[in-house]
Design a protein around this nucleic acid. Structure first.
Ligand code: MN
Ligand code: MN
Ligand code: ZN
Ligand code: ZN
Lengths: 138, 138
DNA sequence: CCTGCTATTGTAAGTAGTTACAATAGCAAA
DNA sequence: TTTGCTATTGTAACTACTTACAATAGCAGG
C-alpha cells in the first residue's frame, strides 16, 4: 500500500514504523483535513500505546518529508491531510466557508517570485482569507 | 500619535486601553516581527500588572481589527507587526532567509480568485516557503 | 463633572504542543 | 539469522496559548 513511501524514507535514511504507517493510513482513509487531536484519538484505538507526543512528532516529520500537508485554517490550530492532490484554500473570515483552488492558479506567481528574487517557492497548501460571495452582501 | 486608531475603535464600539496602546507602541517602535513572548517581556517593564493572557487577547483583537498583521513563519509560532505597509514573505526552508514581496504582486491573483469563485480575498501578509538561491545550489 | 452600562482586564485553571532523555526497535550488513 | 548502529518512541516535565468568571475601568450621555 505504502511501499513507495517506505522506499523513499529508506533512501533518505529514515525508518518506517507502525506509528508512522498508522498516521498515514488514518489520513488516507479520512480524505480530508484532520486535527492532531482527531488523529491521536483514532490512532489510540489501534495502537493503544501510542502517545500524543508521537502523533505531533510524526505529523511534523511526515510534513517535512512532503508526504502530508499542513494548513493553518484560521482557528489557530494546524490541520493535516494526505499529500497528492496539489491545491490551496480560500476561506471566508465571516462564515468559514472554504473553497479549493488548484495549484495551477499559483504557478505563474511562483514563476514571478523565481525571476524577481531567485527564490524557488514550493508551498503546496496555502490558505487565503477573505469574504465569500454571500458574506459580501451582509 | 494613535488618534486615528482610537477614533476607529470607538466607531466600531471598542475601547482604547493602556494595554492596547502599549502593544501598538511596542510593535511600532520595533518595526519588525515580534513574538507574543517578546511583546509580553517588553510590556511588563512598562505596565507590570499586565498579564500574558492580555497580551495574547490584545494581539488577536488588534489583528482582527486590521491594525496589526500576524504571520506564521515556519517555527510554528505566530509573530506580529504593525500594519501599514502591505507585503508578503518568501522564506527559505533550509536557511530561514526571508524576502519581502510587495502586495502588488498578488493583486492579479486575488482578482482571478474573485472572478473564478466570487471570494474577495484580503490576506495581506501571506508566507510562502521554498529555497533561496544559495540553498538551491547545495 | 457624575453616572451607568458594558467592554476589557487579571486571575487561575485548563488545553495544546514541545523537548530531553533513556529504552526500544528498524534495518543494513555480515 | 544474528548483530550492531542509531533513528524513533514513551515518559514526564515544560512552555505556549486559551478560557470562564468576577472585578475593573473606558467612555457616552446627562
Ligand atoms: Mn487542503
Ligand atoms: Mn511582515
Ligand atoms: Zn462567508
Ligand atoms: Zn536558504
Amino acid at each position: 500500500m505504502f511501499d513507495q513511501i517506505i522506499e523513499t524514507l529508506h533512501q533518505r535514511g529514515f525508518r518506517m514504523t507502525p506509528q508512522r504507517l498508522l498516521v498515514l493510513q488514518i489520513l488516507k482513509d479520512a480524505g480530508r483535513h484532520l486535527a492532531p487531536q482527531e488523529i491521536f484519538a483514532q490512532a489510540q484505538r489501534i495502537l493503544p500505546a501510542m502517545t500524543e507526543a508521537t502523533v505531533y512528532r510524526t505529523l511534523s516529520f511526515l510534513s517535512e518529508q512532503g508526504l502530508i500537508l499542513a494548513a493553518h485554517i484560521g482557528n489557530g490550530q494546524l490541520v493535516y491531510e494526505i499529500a497528492g492532490h496539489d491545491h490551496h484554500h480560500l476561506i471566508c473570515r465571516a462564515c468559514g466557508a472554504t473553497k479549493q483552488i488548484d495549484h495551477q492558479f499559483l504557478e505563474s506567481l511562483y514563476q514571478q517570485f523565481r525571476s524577481k528574487t531567485g527564490y524557488q517557492i514550493d508551498s503546496l497548501h496555502v490558505t487565503f482569507f477573505g469574504l465569500c460571495p454571500d458574506c459580501q452582501k451582509n
